[in-house]
């Protein structure tokens, strides 16, 4: 390179550096704890308000106390269940069932979704059934499952699978459908064929839709599990949160009923918030699909 070329090269380098600096926005992000605080206090305030309203209604005596217990009654019921150990036991049983059922749904739903998403004949054949199944409340399977499997774990897992598999499979399908054809072309230009193309291009590109499907799949697993536990009760089955709730109903223990509902809600939210929301946020943020502050 001649001296002149070197100078031209330096000019170009500084020009590009300037353009790059002008066009990239350095985002200012708040510290992590500030973001966490900003996201946390509004729902906490809302819950606190709800409890206050509840207490006021209770104090006003609109309904008799056995029809509407006070917040502290429910809290006391939760404490009793905790001290008796039934709450922990039921929570563990239900979470274990929900988790196992979800993992099994994952193992079935993922390949099923790949098949439906990538093989045209399979898609024509079972695509509509799969979307249809998604709108069928899985509690409808409980009577059939009881007749097939009796009051056993198999009944519970069957209902969970029927709830979660369509969601996960459909998530995979929509993820695959959203893959821009240009990515696949680029992959081919770079020499990705067959499995390499699936591994390096197709599957990573389909990930956001798939993760959305997983999140929904978990919600459906949990709902189906509770439906199954509320209906299928037997001493042979370990005590789950649903069974605990139904037990309270039979004992006319209203604080216990509300405590049960609360437990189901809190577990569902906790797993969603601690597991699925961070995974989804991470996937989307890496791709620039959500603002870093949200």
């Amino acid at each position: 390179m001649s001296l002149l070329d070197h100078r031209a090269n330096d000019d170009l380098a500084s020009l590009e550096a300037g353009l790059d600096a002008l066009e990239s926005n350095e985002r200012k992000t708040l510290p992590r704890w500030r973001r966490w605080l900003a996201a946390t206090w509004p729902p906490l305030v809302a819950v606190a308000l709800l409890v206050v309203v509840w207490q006021l209604v209770y104090n006003a005596g609109v309904l008799p106390a056995y029809r509407l217990p006070s917040p502290s009654d429910v809290l006391a019921s939760l404490r009793d269940q905790w001290q008796a150990g039934t709450l922990q036991q039921a929570t563990w049983n239900s979470v274990r069932r929900g988790g196992l059922g979800f993992l099994a749904s994952l193992a079935i739903g993922t390949p099923l979704g790949l098949l439906v998403g990538r093989v045209r004949s399979v898609r024509r054949a079972i695509g509509p059934i799969l979307s249809g199944l998604q709108s069928l409340p899985s509690v409808a399977w409980v009577p059939a499952a009881i007749l097939w499997f009796g009051l056993s774990d198999a009944t519970i897992y069957f209902v969970v699978l029927m709830g979660a598999v369509p969601s996960i499979a459909n998530g995979m399908v929509s993820g695959l459908d959203q893959v821009p054809p240009l990515y696949l072309r680029v992959g081919r230009v770079l020499g990705a064929r067959g499995l390499a193309s699936a591994r390096h291009v197709l599957l990573p590109a389909a990930l956001p839709g798939y993760v959305g499907g997983l999140r929904q799949g978990w919600a459906f697993s949990w709902r189906s599990l509770m439906a199954a536990e509320l209906i299928a009760r037997s001493p042979d089955l370990g005590l789950g949160v649903g069974q605990l709730l139904d037990q309270s109903r039979q004992l006319q223990d209203f604080p216990g009923v509300l405590a049960g509902i609360l437990t189901i809600l809190v577990i569902g939210i906790a797993i969603e918030l601690c597991l699925f929301a961070p995974i989804e946020r991470r996937v989307l943020r890496r791709r620039g699909l959500v603002a870093a502050t949200s």
Binding site: P180, L182, Y183, R185, V186, V201, P204, A205, L207, V283, R286, R287, G288
Partner: peptide, 8 residues
């Protein structure tokens, strides 16, 4: 389009 893969 640059068609870079956004997950990388």
């Amino acid at each position: 389009e640059p068609a870079l893969f956004p997950w990388l």
